[in-house]
Nucleic acid binder design. Structure first.
Length: 594
RNA sequence: GAGGGGGUAGCUCAGCCGGAUAGAGCAUCGGUUUUCUAAACCGACGGUCGCGGGUUCGAGUCCCGCCCCCCUCGCCA
């Protein structure tokens, strides 16, 4: 074990250490080590000398030369396989020798090795991730795509980097809509059957009707409230109905989760916390954080102008409604406490729509003060938020009738298009494989990748054309590249990873470029983890696939010279493993052929 | 009004812990296959990085002002 998993990080540490022996630099010198912006400059560059020279009023080139001399004397640089020089106004460029590239490729050969390299980021940390957390009694629609897809990718990233992860599906199963729904069910004498695929759709229709009635007739609204009150007081009939509604919802959700390969460790919905909110009210009141306002129990944050009681537009954190019932603020607070006490959470990650930013900001501030006042240890709280999926017109996506687009219909359409495309491109593959394996996987992968491919904080325009186009930075392109690599091994009669003995160091431009790209994985992973942005990984995988394609076009793998063939097979094997591991991190299951 | 996001090629978007000549895909035009999956590769075309100031050796990236678009703002989650 000698090659650095993440050379940029190690280089940075090394330069900092050596800089202490250079008088003009010292201990607080920031080397600003970055991947080289242009490969002609090498693999990594140190930009920090320019700024330091300015402060010390020295010639930057001379200072860079001095620092580099100290680095070279120290010896590590050469051992790690770097060549280096001073360039331009005072940059220091570092280039890994082909032998060093070969060593990394030899050493970091599979997901286990990468996981070990990456484990420093989250080693052993207890993390609870809250997703996709849908509301019950409604079918999953396009709005549920992002929490599923982003949540799963973030979860896998964290797990890959060593976190001890609990996936907690915090379903919304205790909302005020249950009064309306229960009333409507009773009126119609409707019988619920959780095993029926139709059941949730029926519930939704009932709710729509009931909702319209309550809007039209105040007496109806009172009746609905009465049903809700009965439920909350533990009425047997209403509780049974509520349980059935939740069961119907969960069964329908599960059918969607299965198609996305989603598994929760626990599903503790809001209802689970209904007997735990009193403690929240009591403690918040006792430590002087919460107070009555217009009959509700609210928390003001006078230290934050926007959330202060003096703000122009009042935005209190309402923890108990004026009718005495809880809301998501109260249950979210109770949930934090539960996760800390019973799941030993050191970090909680919420994956939700960006429109909830105010809520989470207030939640986090309130929790911070509450935990401080009660001498509890606060976990790190992170809101991983995302933008909205827009229709082709740039407005919230809807069907022609104005209803939300069902998630299942998105999956079906994507799958159908994928089937068409595969059948056109590769008709000799067995029909059954195309239909049951390849098409569904490409379809779901396309949905996922479209969602993950751009920065999550951006809104994006949903376009069938773009989503199902199999060119450019898309899932089918990446899947295709992964399949092409596998095909090389199939033709050679080898398993991926075999035939590397006696490999020489990369030599041709295509080989070198690919090898460098492979090394870039560690940095991409770190970047994706830092802000929990899966799209950094997407960008990397796309680059890697491109580097492979160029390599593949100019470097025939199955050649006669054993050393050349072995080194190219090694490059192929690593590309294959990295593409496939990377896709899995995004939640995308790679294919054998397509 | 306050807060958040966005404004980069005709379109969709990367790049934004300041770094050397601003990148992809699509579209348009052209080239590459008796060769490991051409769903590919290579090339050409295409830019006042919203506008104006400032900081800096260096600004798409940081700061200030302004303009435009989207979202949120008292009891839904």
């Amino acid at each position: 074990m000698s090659a650095w998993f993440n050379p940029a990080r190690e280089l940075d540490a090394l330069i900092r250490r050596v800089a202490t022996s250079v008088p003009a630099l010292g201990a607080d010198f920031d080397p600003q080590v970055r991947p080289a912006t242009d490969t002609r400059h090498g693999d990594f560059q140190c930009n920090g000398v320019l700024a330091a020279a300015k402060i010390a009023k020295l010639n930057p080139r001379a200072l860079a030369t001095e620092l580099l001399a100290a680095l070279e004397t120290e010896g590590t640089l050469k051992k790690a396989g770097f060549e280096s020089d001073v360039a331009g106004p005072g940059f220091i460029n570092f280039r890994l020798t082909p032998a060093a590239l070969a060593e990394w490729i030899h050493e970091y050969r599979d997901a286990d090795a990468w996981r070990r390299g990456a484990s420093a980021l989250y080693a052993g940390r207890n993390v609870v991730i809250d997703y996709p957390s849908p509301n019950t009694a409604k079918q999953m629609h396009v709005g549920h795509l992002r929490p599923i897809v982003i949540g799963e990718a973030v979860a896998r990233l964290l797990e890959f980097c060593g976190a001890k992860l609990t996936r907690d599906n915090h379903i919304g199963d205790w909302g005020t809509n249950f009064g309306i729904l229960i009333l409507a069910i009773k009126r119609k004498g409707f019988i619920l059957d959780a095993s029926s695929p139709q059941a949730l759709e029926d519930l939704e229709a009932l709710y729509k009707e009931g909702s319209a009635l309550t809007k039209a007739d105040p007496a109806e609204l009172d009746a609905a409230r009465a049903e809700l009150a009965k439920l909350q007081l533990g009425d047997t009939a209403n509780t049974a109905l509520w349980q059935q509604i939740v069961a119907v919802s969960n069964a329908a959700f599960q059918r969607i989760y299965d198609q996305f390969g989603l598994k929760s460790d626990v599903t503790l919905g809001e209802s689970f916390y209904r007997d735990k909110v009193d403690q929240v009210y009591r403690e918040l009141t006792e430590c002087g954080l919460a107070e009555e306002s217009d009959g509700a129990l609210v928390v003001w944050h006078d230290d934050i102008p926007r959330f202060s009681r003096d703000a122009e537009t009042k935005l209190p954190f309402i923890v108990r409604k004026k009718d005495g019932s809880s809301n998501y603020a109260s249950t979210d607070l109770a949930t934090i406490l539960y996760r800390v006490e019973h799941m030993k959470a050191e970090e909680i990650v919420y994956v939700t729509d960006g429109r909830q930013q105010d809520h989470f900001q207030q939640l986090f501030i309130t929790a911070t003060k509450w935990f401080k006042a009660t001498n509890r240890k606060l976990p790190r709280l992170r809101h991983v938020w995302f933008g909205t999926i827009l229709g082709e017109d740039g407005k919230a996506i809807k069907t022609k009738s104005g209803d939300p687009v069902r998630l299942q219909s998105l999956i079906d359409e994507a799958t159908a298009k994928a089937y068409e495309k595969v059948s056109e491109k590769n008709p000799e593959l067995p029909e059954d494989e195309r239909r049951t394996v390849i098409a569904p996987r490409i379809g779901v992968a396309a949905l996922r990748y479209t969602d993950l491919g751009s920065n999550r904080t951006m809104d994006y325009r949903f376009s069938w054309e773009k989503m199902l186009s199999f060119e450019g930075n898309t899932a089918p392109y990446l899947l295709y590249q992964a399949v092409r690599v596998r095909s090389v091994f199939r033709n050679a009669g080898l398993k991926v990873g075999q035939g590397e003995e006696g490999a020489s160091a990369p030599e041709t431009p295509g080989e070198i470029a690919l090898a460098r790209k492979l090394l870039g994985f560690s940095a991409a992973l770190e970047e994706a983890c830092a802000d929990l942005r899966p799209h950094a990984l997407c960008t990397y995988l796309y680059d890697l696939a491109g580097a492979y394609s160029s390599f593949y076009a100019d470097n025939k793998v199955l050649v006669d010279e054993p050393a050349v063939k072995a080194r190219r097979l090694a490059l192929c094997a690593r590309t294959s493993a990295l593409l496939e591991s990377g896709l899995r991190l995004l939640g995308i299951e790679p294919l054998e052929r397509m």
